[in-house]
Amino acid sequence: MANRSVQLRGDGLLLREWVDADLAEMVPLFDDPEVAYRTPVVTPFGRHAAEDYLARARQATADGTRLHLAVTVGGGPIGGEVILNRITAMIAYTVAPAYRRQGLATRAVRLLTRYAYEVAGLPAVFLQIEADNVGSVAVARATGFRLLEESPEMVEDKGRRYALHRWAHVNGVRRQASS
């Protein structure tokens, strides 16, 4: 499977591995102030950072540790990225400003969650979200993730210290009311 390119289709999306031709689209996606604030990507994010990021993403895929997929609407322009960390079972995602509030992250997370269970064989997947990240909290809830009752992970990045709360989705378990 190492030489096979991953492509996931569904709900109007095509999730596919990054290619060299995507470098120009990666710059505005990852150089967005909200993305820079919420993620550990290099800031500012220019062409050289995009080349480095693509090289690291390809290496992680080759190593089998992470899968980085460009999110496209039906194979068109790139609207974001979704990542599956196979070691921690963590999903992460980024959406470009022009594609926010259109359900792109929700649809991409659903597709990648299904892949995590059906192809990667993971028994559960997780998200890490800051409590004030209203958009990501909405994505977590819409995709059936539940906030875990545990202490958040404290992270320091770019001179900012913040708490990441863990959300879980267990294979076969949809969002449901507690009994």
Rank of each mutant, 00 (worst) to 15 (best):
H68P: 11
G12H: 08
R47I: 11
V6T: 13
E81D: 15
A70Q: 02
V6M: 11
T43Q: 09
G64M: 07
Y53M: 12
G64I: 05
V19T: 01
F30P: 06
A49V: 07
D32V: 06
V42F: 06
P77Y: 08
A70K: 04
F30E: 11
R56G: 09
D32Y: 12
R47L: 14
H48S: 15
W18Q: 01
A21P: 02
A60L: 05
L15A: 06
A24I: 13
L23Y: 11
V71D: 10
Y37W: 15
A62D: 08
E81C: 14
S5E: 12
A36L: 08
I78Y: 02
L23R: 13
V27E: 08
T61I: 01
V41R: 02
L15V: 14
D31L: 03
E51M: 13
E34G: 05
R9Y: 13
T39E: 10
E81P: 08
G46E: 09
V27T: 01
G64T: 05
G74P: 07
G80R: 15
G79D: 09
Q59E: 07
A36F: 02
L13F: 09
V41Q: 02
E51Q: 15
V27C: 03
A36G: 01
H48G: 15
G64W: 07
A21N: 05
V27L: 05
Q7F: 03
G74W: 01
T61A: 14
R16G: 12
A21K: 02
V19I: 00
R38A: 13
G75R: 10
P77R: 11
A57E: 10
L69E: 03
G76K: 05
Q7E: 11
R58G: 06
F45I: 05
E34D: 14
A55C: 09
T72A: 09
G80D: 11
T61Y: 11
A24T: 15
G76P: 08
F45C: 11
V6H: 00
T65N: 12
A60H: 12
P28E: 00
A36W: 09
A24S: 10
E25H: 02
E51P: 09
L23T: 13
R16A: 10
A57D: 11
G74V: 03
L69T: 06
G80P: 15
L69N: 04
G46W: 00
L29W: 13
R58I: 03
V42N: 07
V19Q: 08
T43D: 00
A36I: 04
T61H: 12
V73E: 08
Y37H: 14
E34H: 09
G10K: 01
A70D: 07
D22S: 02
F30W: 08
G79T: 00
L13R: 02
D63M: 03
A24K: 11
R9S: 15
A62F: 07
A55V: 08
T39L: 14
G79S: 04
E51K: 14
A36P: 00
A60W: 06
L15W: 03
R56D: 09
G79A: 06
D11W: 13
G46P: 01
T72V: 07
